[in-house]
Design a protein around this nucleic acid. Sequence first.
DNA 1: GAGACGTGGCG
DNA 2: TCGCCAAGTCT
Length: 350
Amino acid sequence: MRDGKGAIGETLLTWYDSHARVMPWRVSPTDRAEGERPDPYRVWLSEVMLQQTTVAAVRDYFRRFTERWPDVGALAAAEDGDVMAEWAGLGYYARARNLLKCARVVAGDLNGRFPETAAELQKLPGIGPYTSAAIAAIAYDEPVAVVDGNVERVVSRLFSVDTPLPGAKTELTELTAQITPEDRPGDFAQAMMDLGATICTPRNPACGICPLIDACTARAAGIAETLPRKAPKKEKPTRRGFAYVAMNGQGDVLLERRPDKGLLGGTLGFPGSDWSDAPTPAPPMQADWTTSPVEVRHTFTHFHLILQVHVTRTEARAMTPRADFRPGDLPTLMRKVWDAAQSAEWPQPE
DNA sequence: GAGACGTGGCG
DNA sequence: TCGCCAAGTCT
């Protein structure tokens, strides 16, 4: 083992001890050696935020969440709208809705304690194969394979797996399990992800400074950058729509909360039309609407969107008080709508 | 199993 | 400007 796959774990942990990136949710190898344990709540929160999201984007959100809600009980007691507002801008809003569901299960049914195994963790809302393994390994030392996009890339290169993803997922998980050490599985997982994020990158991998260069078969074969293979992407269609920004004489703004299901579910935004090839105008009230000269362009995971923004002054509706409206509480698309509205020629009050 | 689901950074 | 991609999950 020591000269085979076990050597990879030892080599990587040695590298991690001197190269681990500092993150607000992470216990350094030094502190860990002195007995400090990761807080399962913070591990869980950070891992959910990190789903499909970069470390740079997560940092400030994590700080604000943990400052405002220091433990799972506090988060479970939060208002839905406050959590959605704090999550605004981070994307994939189902994560925020599931975060609250999960916090309420843990605080309400589990005495505030997270389950300690990957199998049990995965039963909770918003916790899938990756997140359950990450929490179990990092917070509870379970020697389970933690496989995210970084690990898929590192492992596919180490062993020259040329089966395209997502088909290769099972094989990559099995290979990851074979190199996951019984000792320090959490540090090993984080080391693999750090390696993938900083050295074994999708393009231009820095093989010259990689601690695993001697073990990497793809590097030896000169095919590292071609792995992992992936099925080709589908083309994104472009959809269009209308958004409506209404304001009264006091500067209060008409906002609505979107239904929990679907795109931007549970978030706050401006009223609008459907989004399609030929959207139907849908002003929230009869009024003197003017069109902003600035169109909003935004790209979601599966389509491009172009919105035409209309604005008006009206007293015809109850609105969100100016003092309660912060553009930062809106998802990015709606912040763009707000910005475009500032460029419009606003009609005079009725 | 394939599609829905955000956003920002980078080449 | 534009496609790729990031510590995925749910249906």
